[in-house]
């Protein structure tokens, strides 16, 4: 985290265009201009809070009528419920359904954080490693602890591929162990990287829009990227959730 080089500034020199693609990710206090301490209410706090509000609106207020024939918001809530429930059931099996509320929490949070981040001028909480790494670490640590609690030392059988030839097994075990510990890294970087990349690219195109000659193309490109980002916002939440389910399945049934 060296501070001397300002890449963005160098990139803009000579062209007259101003690129600040990373400025949208700055965390700043919501009230006043103080330092960002541990409990400071920042834009992160605001958009996390809005995610809670959105989830409450959909999942609690939307279903408050408990109608047998559902209203629109209630069917969306039921759709989300059924989607994640089926995913957990399909991937981990019946005994994974105990952990369904945790996985539902992850999915709802990521989906709403991603979609709220697509509102112009908003702050995307899931674009920060400080948000996705704790999410992925929570999954990783939770799944590992669960695996050892459920299976005891038998959980290590996950790394011992019994279907492979005996000579290959130690090598495969090393690879499996490495890939196991890479999991939280790829899990978190995939989410944050995708979201950050999309937002930064949109910002770069927005920088080109200042140039009158290319501004129509740039606005068209922003529109196209935005459509792609809507897709990515959902798919990344889906992928994060389904990978959580896959890791959970490994913890519950470690034998290959």
């Amino acid at each position: 985290m060296a501070t001397e080089t300002h890449g963005a500034e160098h990139a803009t020199e000579g062209t007259g265009l101003v690129f600040h693609p990373m400025d949208q990710f700055i965390v700043k206090p919501l009230f006043g201009h103080g330092d960002v301490g541990l409990f400071t209410i920042t834009n992160v706090t605001l958009w996390l809070f809005l995610a809670i509000v959105a989830i409450v609106l959909l999942m609690v207020v939307g279903t408050s009528r408990r109608a047998i024939v559902p209203s629109r918001s209630q069917s969306v809530a039921e759709l989300a419920y059924g989607f994640v429930y089926k995913m957990v059931e399909d991937v981990t099996g019946k005994d994974g359904l105990k952990y369904f509320p945790y996985i539902m929490t992850l999915f709802m949070f990521i989906v709403f954080a991603n979609f709220l981040g697509l509102i112009p001028m908003s702050f995307t909480t899931t674009s920060h490693f400080a948000v996705t790494v704790p999410l992925a670490l929570a999954v990783f640590i939770g799944v590992t602890v669960l695996g050892f609690v459920k299976n005891g030392p038998g959980f290590l059988g996950l790394f011992w591929v019994s279907s492979a030839p005996l000579a290959l097994r130690p090598i495969l075990a090393i690879i499996e162990v490495i890939s196991y510990f890479v999991r939280p890294m790829s899990h978190s970087i995939r989410l944050a990287g995708n979201v950050m990349a999309g937002h930064a690219v949109i910002k770069v195109f927005a920088g080109f829009a200042a140039l009158a000659a290319v501004s129509p193309i740039s606005i068209l490109a922003i529109t196209a990227m935005y459509g792609l980002e809507v897709l990515v916002a959902f798919i990344q939440a889906y992928v994060f959730t389904i990978l959580t389910c896959v890791y959970l399945k490994d913890a519950l049934h470690p034998s290959h």
Partner: peptide, 29 residues
């Protein structure tokens, strides 16, 4: 389809890693 998305996610993750390295070289080194 679940397998499809898992496969796409694994393939894409490595691309995102290289993108991240590009960003690190641009902004953080």
């Amino acid at each position: 389809t679940a397998t499809l998305f898992i496969g796409i996610a694994f393939a894409e993750a490595l691309g995102i890693f290289s993108f991240l390295i590009a960003l690190l070289l641009m902004f953080a080194v």
